Amino acid sequence: MSDSNTTNFTNPSTFILLGIPGLGAAHIWISIPFCAMYTITVLGNFTILFIVKKEPSLHGPMFYFLSMLAITDLVMSTSTIPKMLSIFWFNSREISFSACLTQMYFIHCFSVMESGILVAMAFDRYVAICNPLRYSATLTNSVVSKLGLAVVLRSGILALPYPFLARRWPYCRTNIIPHFYCGHIAVVKLACTDIRINSYYGLFNLFSMIGMDGFFIAMSYTLILRAIFRLPTKDARLKTFATCISHLCAISALYIPDLFSSLIQRFCHNVPLHFLILITSVYQLVPPMIHPIIYGVRTKQIRGRLLQLFTHKET
Rank of each mutant, 00 (worst) to 15 (best):
F15H: 01
F15W: 09
P21M: 07
G22N: 12
L23W: 12
G24D: 13
H27Y: 13
I28M: 07
W29E: 13
I30S: 12
P33D: 07
M37R: 02
T39L: 15
K53T: 09
K54W: 00
L58I: 07
H59F: 04
P61H: 02
P61G: 02
F65I: 01
L66T: 09
I71P: 04
I71F: 15
I71Q: 10
I71V: 14
D73W: 06
L74M: 08
L74S: 06
V75I: 15
V75A: 07
M76P: 01
S79Q: 05
S79Y: 03
P82W: 02
M84Q: 14
L85V: 05
F88D: 10
W89C: 10
R93I: 12
E94L: 14
S96L: 05
F97E: 11
A99L: 09
L101F: 02
T102M: 10
I107Y: 09
I117F: 01
M121L: 07
Y126Q: 08
A128I: 03
C130Y: 08
C130W: 03
P132T: 07
R134W: 11
R134F: 09
S136A: 14
S136I: 06
S142F: 06
V143K: 00
L147Q: 00
V151E: 01
V152Q: 06
L153H: 05
R154K: 12
L158W: 09
A159L: 07
Y162D: 08
P163N: 08
N175E: 13
I176N: 11
Y181G: 02
Y181T: 07
Y181S: 13
C182A: 15
A186E: 15
K189H: 15
D194Y: 14
N198P: 02
S199I: 08
N205P: 00
F207A: 00
I210M: 13
I210L: 15
M212D: 00
F216N: 00
A218P: 05
S220P: 05
T222M: 13
L223V: 03
L225V: 09
R226D: 06
L231K: 11
T233N: 06
K234E: 09
K239Y: 04
T240I: 03
L254Y: 01
Y255R: 01
Y255C: 07
I256T: 11
F260Y: 08
S261C: 10
S261L: 07
L263C: 08
H269I: 08
H269K: 14
V271Q: 09
F275S: 04
L278G: 05
T280L: 07
Q284N: 13
L285M: 15
P288Q: 06
M289P: 04
M289T: 14
I290H: 01
P292A: 00
V297S: 02
G304W: 09
L307A: 07
L309R: 12
K313T: 02
